Deep mutational scan, measured.
Amino acid sequence: DIIVVALYDYEAIHHEDLSFQKGDQMVVLEESGEWWKARSLATRKEGYIPSNYVARVDS
C-alpha cells in the first residue's frame, strides 16, 4: 500500500472529497492526475485528496 502523510489541513469542497488535518496518514487507493482517492487511517473514510497536499511515507 502507498501511505501518505498530510502536509497541510484540507477542508473538503465537494461531497466526494476527504477532509484531513496536517499529520494525518492515508492509504492511496487510486492515483489519477492531481486528485487521488484515499482512505484515512484514523477515520477509515474514503474520498478524493489533492495530491500536492500530501507526501509519501517511506516504509
Rank of each mutant, 00 (worst) to 15 (best):
S51L: 06
R56A: 08
V5Y: 10
H14P: 02
G33H: 06
V28R: 01
Q21S: 13
R44A: 13
K22S: 07
V4S: 02
Y53V: 04
V27L: 14
R56G: 06
N52V: 09
R44S: 14
E16T: 13
E11G: 06
G33I: 04
E31L: 15
Q21T: 11
D17G: 15
D17K: 08
V54T: 04
H14S: 12
I13E: 11
S59L: 12
Q21C: 14
P50A: 03
W36V: 08
A12T: 04
S32E: 11
L29H: 04
L18D: 00
D58E: 12
S59W: 12
R56T: 08
I3D: 02
L18Y: 02
I49V: 08
S51F: 10
K37V: 09
V5W: 06
G33Q: 05
E11A: 11
D24M: 05
I3P: 03
V4W: 14
E11Q: 13
E31F: 15
Y8F: 12
M26K: 00
E31S: 15
S59I: 13
G33R: 05
A12G: 11
K22M: 08
L29G: 02
A6F: 02
A55Q: 13
V4G: 00
L41E: 05
I2M: 12
L41W: 04
S19F: 04
S19E: 06
A12I: 03
D24Q: 07
I13A: 10
Y53E: 01
K45W: 05
T43L: 04
W35D: 03
F20L: 03
S32M: 13
H14A: 09
S32T: 12
E16L: 12
N52W: 15
V54Q: 01
K37N: 05
L18A: 00
D24C: 04
Y53K: 08
I13P: 07
W36R: 03
N52H: 13
A12H: 02
K45M: 12
K37F: 15
L7I: 09
A38F: 01
A55D: 07
L41S: 05
S40R: 07
K45Y: 07
A6Y: 01
R39L: 09
Y10W: 10
T43W: 03
E31A: 15
A12E: 03
V27F: 08
D1T: 13
R44E: 12
V57I: 14
V57S: 08
G47S: 01
S51N: 07
G23W: 05
Y10P: 00
G23D: 05
Y10K: 03
R56D: 04
D17M: 14
I2V: 13
K22G: 03
G23C: 08
A55C: 12
L41D: 03
I49F: 05
I49W: 01
S32N: 13
G23H: 04
D17S: 10
E34W: 15
A42H: 10
S40P: 03
Y10R: 06
L18E: 00
A38Q: 01
V57R: 07
K22F: 06
G47Q: 00
I3Y: 10
W35N: 06
W36F: 12
R56Q: 08
V27M: 10
N52C: 14
E16G: 15
V57L: 14
V57W: 09
S32C: 15
T43Y: 04
A38E: 01
Y10S: 02
I13S: 10
E31Q: 15
I49K: 00
E46P: 02
A55M: 14
G23M: 03
D9P: 07
D17Y: 14
Y10F: 14
Q25V: 15
D9Q: 05
D9E: 05
Q21Y: 10
G23V: 01
E11V: 15
D1E: 14
I49D: 01
Y48E: 02
I3M: 08
F20N: 00
I3V: 10
G33T: 06
T43M: 03
V27Q: 10
A12M: 04
Y48R: 11
V5I: 13
H14I: 05
E46Q: 09
E31R: 14
V5A: 04
S51R: 12
S32H: 14
A55S: 10
S59Q: 13
H14E: 07
V5G: 01
Q21E: 09
Y8T: 06
V54K: 01
Q25R: 15
